[in-house]
Amino acid sequence: MKKTYVKGLAAVLLMAVAGPVLADNAGPSMTDKPTEAASQMPLGEQVYTTTCQECHMPNAMGAEGAGRYPALAKNPKLAAKQYPMVMVVNGSKAMPSFARQLDADEIAAVVNYVRTHFGNNYKDKVTAAEVKAVLPKTGPYEGH
């Protein structure tokens, strides 16, 4: 699902960021292939189920403990397609940026997936080109 170079970059980024803990790892995973069931899913659903639902939950209802993860289900903030797109690209507070973990196609697909599922029914789509326009052009780890 992910292109190798994207994954390589993500690994380098995480190495630089996480340092002490990741120094433990043998290196980037070379076997991170989607399961057969996952590979039959549409791309947006694949990204949601392997990434977003970690925090926003399988039913997109979010969760609350000492702090909370907002629900994406029936969320009126999704009406403007730029809002979820920029959230995924830039992150917000505890939520990390996914600009290096996901590519433009994946970000567009997952934004469109969330905006048409979980009680959301928005007709307009985000394109990969629109995502590329807001992805950071260069970054501190581009050279690696």
Partner: peptide
Amino acid sequence: GYMFGPNAMKFTA
């Protein structure tokens, strides 16, 4: 298992 990054996200999901 002790994972970080995308694999940790996928497993936690």
